[in-house]
Amino acid sequence: MNTQAAIPPRWRAPRWTVWATWAVFLAIFVQGVVAIKLTPERLLRGIGNLGDFLARAFPPDTGGLDAVAWAMLETLNIAIVGVSVGVVLSVPFALLAARNTTPHMLVRSTVRLVIATLRTIPDLIWALIFVVAVGLGPLAGVLAIVLDTIGFAARFFAERIEEVQPGPSEALASTGAGRLSVVMGAILPETFASMTATSLYSVEKAIRSAVTLGLVGAGGIGVELAASMRLFQYDRAFMIILVILVVVIAFEQVSASIRRRVI
């Protein structure tokens, strides 16, 4: 009886489909490099321009700091108001989308489709649409953040709700409590910590995106940044970038400490 199997070879010739996939990928890559005219001299010139930008950006212009601070505050307002409204709306969306709390499977698939659509369309596009709808300014930014937050948070909330053990809900149902009481009495307390963490992350994400929303005129510090760049006031632009950096890092610290306390 021969129980000894052969040692696997060091190398096995890949199937032709593997070769073909690599070949297609390489073709696309080379075509891409050619199409965007990625040449060494262009890169060198780019580095030169970057040096020019930095030279003109230093020292950062602290002149209009109060105007920049107000614009930054507006960005924070957009992010916080947008996320708060978005998170509050995400809870009912998530309850309708979670298998164990939805009133009907048809409702579930419809709501999931809506959430997926909100998530798939980038916030910048929502902002462009809302600028058309409600005009330039922070309101368009807030609305874009609301939709973006629902697309993100409702999905995570729904996933968390589906992970909840059925036991505690059954225990409350067997006291004769109604559906809504069971949800508020058992499911929300059990998911609270994770929903808080998701919401805090949404704010971090929203502050970053509220900055870029300003570039399309939806209010906040992005408007200032776009203006400075267009007017070649690189020193002012640099200061704005520094302010954004400080605020984003500061909020991440705050958010991390809240998260530690909740979980």
């Binding site: 505690p168 225990a171 006291t175 409590a177 809504l180 009495g185 307390p189 059990e190 910590a193």
Partner: peptide, 24 residues
């Protein structure tokens, strides 16, 4: 099947959920 994230007291109160007005 008690609710771990709320107080012992709240868990006991939950027993009355089905018999009081306004549920939870």
């Amino acid at each position: 099947n008690i609710i771990g994230n709320v107080s012992v007291f709240q868990n006991v109160l939950n027993g009355a959920m089905g018999r009081v007005p306004f549920g939870v």
